[in-house]
Computed example of a mutant assay.
Amino acid sequence: MAGKEAPMATRRAQTSRESRQLLIRAATELFAERGFRQTTFADIANRSGISRGSIPWHFGNKDGLLQAVIEELTVNMADLDSAAHDLADGLDRVRDQVRQPTMRLLITLVAEAVEPGSPVHAFYAQLHDTIRKWVAGWVAESDIPTGTSRADFVAVVVGAIIGLHQQWRVAPESVDLDRCFVALKAMSISGRDAT
């Protein structure tokens, strides 16, 4: 009897993990398309093919689901920091990451992030802080323009990254992402040589 229970428990756990991933994928797509507040449990259930009642079972509530979506996105972005050698390499990695469909989520949710009491506000603050740390690591050994603090230089580079991402998502026919990142690298590197 015990021998039969173990494979069944393993299969149930696997099914639970798969359901959770399907819900996260569906929520990511829908949050990116419609925004967090405009997406319902019914929308997510329809997109994922998983019952609506499974959402609170897995995540507690909609905020819990959003947190799971954000954690998944953060995990997927983790390689931006780990393998970059310098600012130019880091910017190349960011450009490649920005192209991922899931990154559209960042643009859709940014408007909600500035609203009072928004459940995504803290995420954006943490995301910006994380990206500033990555860029600071990429330029740690580099010269920066005289009279410019390292923190200010990093904040400007991060602002440019976020701005390019937003412009490209809104008007990809008008903004060439590759050329813009080449320009950003050139300005960042030549700007560091300025006196």
Rank of each mutant, 00 (worst) to 15 (best):
residue 84 A to L: 01
residue 159 G to W: 07
residue 87 L to H: 01
residue 175 V to G: 03
residue 17 R to L: 13
residue 169 R to F: 04
residue 12 R to V: 09
residue 163 G to Y: 00
residue 120 V to P: 02
residue 178 D to C: 03
residue 177 L to W: 08
residue 93 R to F: 04
residue 102 T to L: 07
residue 67 Q to R: 14
residue 136 A to K: 07
residue 135 V to Q: 03
residue 24 I to H: 00
residue 7 P to K: 00
residue 182 V to S: 12
residue 95 R to A: 14
residue 152 D to K: 00
residue 156 V to K: 05
residue 116 P to C: 03
residue 42 A to Y: 02
residue 113 A to K: 02
residue 63 D to C: 11
residue 50 I to V: 15
residue 1 M to Y: 11
residue 146 T to H: 11
residue 187 M to W: 08
residue 126 Q to D: 14
residue 124 Y to Q: 00
residue 143 D to F: 08
residue 176 D to L: 04
residue 140 A to F: 02
residue 171 A to F: 12
residue 101 P to D: 09
residue 20 R to N: 10
residue 84 A to D: 04
residue 1 M to R: 07
residue 169 R to C: 13
residue 95 R to V: 06
residue 44 I to A: 01
residue 173 E to S: 14
residue 176 D to W: 01
residue 190 S to W: 14
residue 130 T to M: 11
residue 95 R to Q: 15
residue 57 W to P: 00
residue 56 P to L: 10
residue 38 Q to L: 12
residue 84 A to V: 03
residue 63 D to E: 15
residue 108 T to K: 14
residue 153 F to V: 00
residue 138 W to N: 04
residue 163 G to S: 01
residue 80 L to M: 11
residue 121 H to M: 10
residue 35 G to W: 06
residue 120 V to M: 00
residue 145 P to W: 00
residue 166 Q to R: 12
residue 149 S to A: 06
residue 11 R to G: 04
residue 9 A to R: 13
residue 115 E to F: 02
residue 107 I to G: 09
residue 109 L to R: 01
residue 85 H to L: 15
residue 178 D to L: 10
residue 31 F to P: 01
residue 25 R to F: 04
residue 143 D to T: 11
residue 193 D to G: 03
residue 184 L to G: 04
residue 53 G to P: 11
residue 113 A to T: 05
residue 62 K to P: 05
residue 137 G to A: 08
residue 26 A to M: 09
residue 44 I to C: 01
residue 103 M to C: 12
residue 177 L to A: 07
residue 115 E to C: 04
residue 117 G to C: 09
residue 154 V to W: 03
residue 184 L to E: 05
residue 16 S to D: 06
residue 142 S to T: 10
residue 30 L to M: 00
residue 76 N to T: 08
residue 114 V to E: 13
residue 2 A to Q: 14
residue 110 V to S: 15
residue 165 H to L: 15
residue 89 D to Q: 03
residue 17 R to C: 03
residue 41 F to W: 08
residue 123 F to M: 08
residue 190 S to E: 15
residue 88 A to I: 07
residue 63 D to I: 14
residue 74 T to M: 08
residue 34 R to I: 02
residue 36 F to G: 09
residue 74 T to W: 09
residue 126 Q to K: 12
residue 46 N to W: 05
residue 67 Q to F: 07
residue 51 S to A: 13
residue 68 A to K: 05
residue 141 E to S: 13
residue 32 A to R: 07
